[in-house]
Design a binder for these strands. Structure first.
Lengths: 228, 228
DNA sequence: CGGTGGTTTCTGGCATACCATATAATGAAA
DNA sequence: TTTCATTATATGGTATGCCAGAAACCACCG
């Protein structure tokens, strides 16, 4: 089977400066703590073009895309500002997330293979209510991957695209979300129920569980996260 | 009370060329029959900049936004092409639409006023199964407005934004969808049921009805619309 | 001391010129 | 006549300069 063959590497495709600037800017904004009090939300075209070492043209095209995506707001002759989402907007994003991921769960019961669904256990069973306290960080990652896995297994690329776009915005708020032990514990229970429903190919139930699970997060953020 | 005063008009805010070019391009692409056989999908920057009477810079920024939105694809040094969505992508869009509008329906039962919901009757009761045949065009419009109204009444701006983005793409396919009398007739029945569920403040039922209604469209497109 | 009008500066908007590469056209060699 | 290498051209990518509007600054006047 294994013949000697050329290991063809994809040609080193040097992306355009616009595209690379877009990625760099998006990453920079993503890691910035834009919700901190003294955060500098203003961007300076000329300064950025110096920092990135590119001219203003590709930079502006990248900014135009970020504006389209809702990450920055360009005020003509006044400045370019990183957009701070309001609490209401964050809540809307979580609501949309709930709608999309619950639909994804429904799709999973229709299109995913048994082995794919079984793979979800690896992201859930590892954690026990008992030792959650010590492994909160790991759990947080596994939590994200669990939801990403459901969306991925749904086979619907568009749901993945939209939710990843939402995640870009919500991520900034995430560091402000306090992960209480109790919430994590109940979250694990929810996840196990969701996996059960998926395995049973019960689309209605899986959809409902995912929706309610995410709407719990919505209510939690509404109640406990302060932004404005 | 009424003193003589200057009737101040808001200054006519001239939008930027980038923004106006964006709108013009989007409209132009939207009205173009891009799924017809001999459709010219290639765009020429220089030609467009002449037609619009603007330089390439704002035009390119507008194109960058349209690329972000998925309406065009920019191939470096090869050309700019209007994106033809595949059938699979269209189906995904309708699926996402179903997820979002069903969530919107749920929200309507929670936040909309009785009078707002009652207003939906105007978009439904007008049509009778009997005279659908004669007023297919009108019905088609009312149909769109009905769904838009639900999304609007949900109060969730984000759902509106995303669905309007989807509509931009689906609209192009719409002209290929044959509106059979039978589908329209059943569609009206569905709508009436949806309004009933909304009036009863039955979130679960409204959500399910809207989801199933839109998934019917999905199945119909999957079965009868040929694209590729 | 406060406010008003003018001036400077800062900042994004736009036009233009040039660059690099992909593709087409051309022509010479087999 | 066909093929392949060379050249020309077309097309998007990038850099740069100038423009106009907005904000900041400042000096003058009340």
């Amino acid at each position: 089977m294994a013949r000697a063959r050329l290991d063809i590497q994809p040609i080193e495709e040097v992306q355009s400066l616009k595209s690379r600037t877009y990625d760099a800017l998006k990453a920079a904004i993503g890691t910035m703590k834009i919700y901190d009090a003294g955060a500098e939300l203003r961007l300076d075209e000329r300064a950025l073009s110096l920092q990135f070492g590119v001219s203003r043209t590709p930079l502006r095209e990248a900014l135009a895309q970020l504006e389209q995506e809702g990450l920055v707001r360009i005020a003509p002759r006044r400045g370019i500002y990183i957009v701070r989402k309001t609490k209401a907007e964050i809540l809307e994003m979580i609501t949309v997330w709930a709608a999309l991921e619950s639909m994804a769960a429904r799709l999973v019961t229709q299109v995913a293979s048994d082995s794919q669904i079984a793979g979800l256990h690896g992201l859930v069973d590892t954690f026990d209510s008992a030792d959650i306290d010590a492994h909160m960080g790991e759990y947080s990652d596994a939590n994200i991957r669990f939801h990403a896995a459901i969306i991925s297994l749904s086979g619907c690329k568009l749901i993945g695209d939209i939710t990843s776009g939402l995640f870009t915005h919500v991520r900034a708020i995430r560091q402000r979300t306090i992960f209480e032990k109790d919430r994590a514990r109940r979250s694990i229970i929810d996840h196990k129920e969701i996996v059960e429903a998926l395995e049973a190919r019960n689309g209605e139930r899986a959809e409902r569980l995912v929706r309610e699970h995410t709407l719990k997060l919505r209510d939690h953020v509404e109640q406990f996260v302060q932004l404005d």
